[in-house]
Amino acid sequence: MTMSSPGKKLYTVLIVPLIIFLVLPIFAGSYLLHIMIFIFFYAYLSQCWNILSGYTGQFSLGHAAFLGVGAYTSSFLFSQYSLTPWVGMFIGALVSLCVGLFIGHICFRFGLKGAFFALATMAFAEILRILFLNLPSMGGAQGLLLPLRGNAPLLYQFEGKAPFYYIALIMMLVSVAVAYAIERSKTGFYFKAIHQNEESAEALGVDTKKYKVIAVGLSAAMTAFGGTFFAQYFMYIQPDNTYSTFVSFDIMLRSIIGGMGTVAGPVIGSFILTPLAEITRSFLGGKSGAHLMIYGLILMAVCIFLPQGVYPGIKKWLTRFQSE
């Protein structure tokens, strides 16, 4: 898993799309912006998932729980106490951090691994979904409708999609930077050691439980910011579009297709899967289910033919480009 340090040419390769992204809202129509927002948004969420599941190998099937906690905390504080979501999202992240530390602590204390941990996270998300469906103060099954305040940047509300576009872009870039920093830090090496062989890591003196809990907490807190973004973008949340198992699947699929445990994987995965999902949805829109059918086919094909994701192939191509 050694990574060659990217040379100067790679930076120039990355600068070009970045400039395109920065100026895109000047030219792009609202539909293209919407798709781009979703690409960045899912790349962000999937990167959060990747930090836990890709790097440490602790497979979460319940990331919707953290998205939901973030979305509900900031939205509840906004609709009940008029607290701006800019502050609410940090409180949401804090609550989500606590939820993540709680889940991580009890799961790893009792030594849950592999499929057991995956099933436990899925069950936690389902518990939260059922709880929120039955909490009248949180809107129950009807969900929470956020009060509209028109163009109010201080309240995380904007006219038009361009501000959301830039927020999503910044979130994605921050998540990439975090993953990049982790990959090069001691913590990152511990994460990878846990993934490759937990017993050996433990034998070499790594406090594996502590670092696994750290990974869950960090991933949970970061995912919560995505929850607030989701709530502000749609102005409406309900348990079935935040806490649902399908949201968890949507989040992890990007990393899996791009390449788990790599910085670029979630972003590449989102650039492949998100437009594909949107396009099939709009082409086959009349028939629901078609785009998710294609998801399923892609997922099975990736597992059988490309279990590492598409990133290793792209990396090979990039190194060839660099050496030329």
Partner: peptide
């Protein structure tokens, strides 16, 4: 394959069958 790939494969099958039924 590793456990996560096996889980993902059956998840893919789950997605496919569920949405084929929906379709």
């Amino acid at each position: 394959s590793p456990m996560e790939i096996q889980i993902l494969l059956t998840l893919g099958l789950f997605f496919f069958l569920q949405n084929a039924a929906l379709f």
